[in-house]
Design a binder for these strands. Structure first.
Lengths: 253, 253
DNA sequence: GATAACTATTGATCTGTGTCAGAATAAGCT
DNA sequence: AGCTTATTCTGACACAGATCAATAGTTATC
């Protein structure tokens, strides 16, 4: 799949997929020398697109790769002992899925496409080997994993301490930031997940998500048209996320 | 406890602290060759004990080390924009604190001792360097971080989907497992954190934690005496964590 | 060893969000 | 297109857990 040659040729558009990838500044290759990007490039396999609803991997399957999302969106989720789905994350382009499988050697979650989605498969044993030769790549992997840990901890705070309004506002602003980082509009975007999936992720009932979104629209914080979202009043949304509603319950200062 | 020396010497007890440490089977050195353990050992600094309430590091401080708990317990927490404390984790002996600081170069949380606590300081730049020379050490670090990611995701599920009973039961069984892993009793242990800290961590009010614990005792699931906990009915507790209370709300199978 | 200062427990009440039910809308499918 | 199925919205009601309040127990301090 991946055609990689460093020497100048006509088809330079084909020489290095990573180098030409618009996401390379966000994904793993950041801060790598050109020759190192090429080496990384050689171990990466571009897979054929997943259609909506298809699995990238399933909970319990043997772990052997992490995946970088190139386009589309994925969700990861657990199936509880009773068959209930529990969404643990959404993944947008440039983001890495599957890191939680390293420890046990099996994916502890399933990953499913929310829309047509393409990914780069990065076989982990190769990546690990390559990271021994390229210190900055190793550092980059540590950083990505560390980032995931602190992001997840922010999510824990959100789930444990925030009310429905704060949860939904946080969720929308978080998506906004991720779109912005990739050069898309921070204020206007399309939700690839359903209200039900948002609720599942945020620990809310579908009805609550729907009501909060409707109320946000009524109060002119956002404008909604089905899955299209426009954030109208950023300051007010940020206020909602930051402090708000805690004004009375300062437990320890 | 475990004395492992390849070369016979008198002072082998002093040559390598890690080799003699009863936690080495759980901490980073696992699966390292003896000579590699010695190299790791050389970069580690044993610090003087922290007294209850003292900080190991503070949110916002420059990151330069991760720490392995040797004895005692730590909590990590955020201070929100309004001064409220939000506990993100408790750390027992053999567990690594500070991994979330790698990404941004600053600790995103504070770490504070819940009782007299000793730690091993592991300067991260040295660890990273050493990991280039010892592939199994690098692998070990990846595993530890990956484990943290999947643990945190379990915690997200707990916070988002479980009710008070399930939260408290999960918390107690989780502690029980961690004690067991270190060779202590799985059924009898001492909580080093207050009810308030448990509630803060689990997203519950102090009063709720207290009530749930009292009820568990009344139903003979556990026996409580202040901070001393004895888990009496493991099967029932596990049932509480596993399925329970979801029997009516199967959303998608 | 007495006093102060937290920490835990228990009861009464209030409220945010879940649950149930039904209608409106959108998305797939033949 | 037209039918089916899934998703979203809206209202009515219920309840788990928060909050308020007051007591009892524990730990720290001088």
């Amino acid at each position: 799949m991946s055609l990689t040659h460093t020497h100048s040729r006509f088809n330079s558009t084909l020489t290095s997929q990573c180098q030409n990838c618009s996401l390379s500044a966000l994904c793993l290759p950041i801060a790598l020398a050109d020759e190192d990007i090429n080496r990384l490039d050689q171990i990466i396999e571009r897979k054929k697109p997943l259609k909506k609803g298809e699995f990238l991997f399933r909970q319990g399957e043997a772990f052997d790769s992490v995946y970088a999302v190139r386009s589309g969106t994925l969700k990861t989720f657990n199936i509880t002992s009773f068959g209930e789905e529990q969404i643990t994350g959404f993944y947008c382009p440039s983001e890495l899925v599957g890191l939680s499988g390293i420890d046990s050697g099996a994916y502890p979650v399933s990953a499913k496409a929310l829309e047509t989605t393409t990914v780069c498969e990065i076989p982990f044993s190769h990546l690990e080997e390559l990271s021994s030769q390229i210190p900055s790549l190793k550092h980059q992997i540590f950083k990505v994993m560390s980032r995931k840990i602190s992001d997840d901890q922010q999510m824990m705070v959100l789930l444990g301490k925030k009310n429905a309004d704060e949860k939904v506002a946080s969720f929308l602003l978080n998506l906004s930031n991720r779109f912005k980082k990739r050069g898309y509009s921070a204020s206007s975007f399309r939700l690839s997940m359903s209200r039900g999936e948002i609720g599942n992720y945020l620990g809310l009932a579908v009805e609550t998500v729907s009501r909060v979104i409707t109320r946000f629209q009524k109060n002119e914080l956002i404008h909604v048209d089905g899955k299209e979202i426009e954030i109208v009043d950023f300051p007010e949304m940020q206020k909602l996320v930051g402090v708000a509603s805690d004004c009375g319950k300062i437990s320890q200062i």
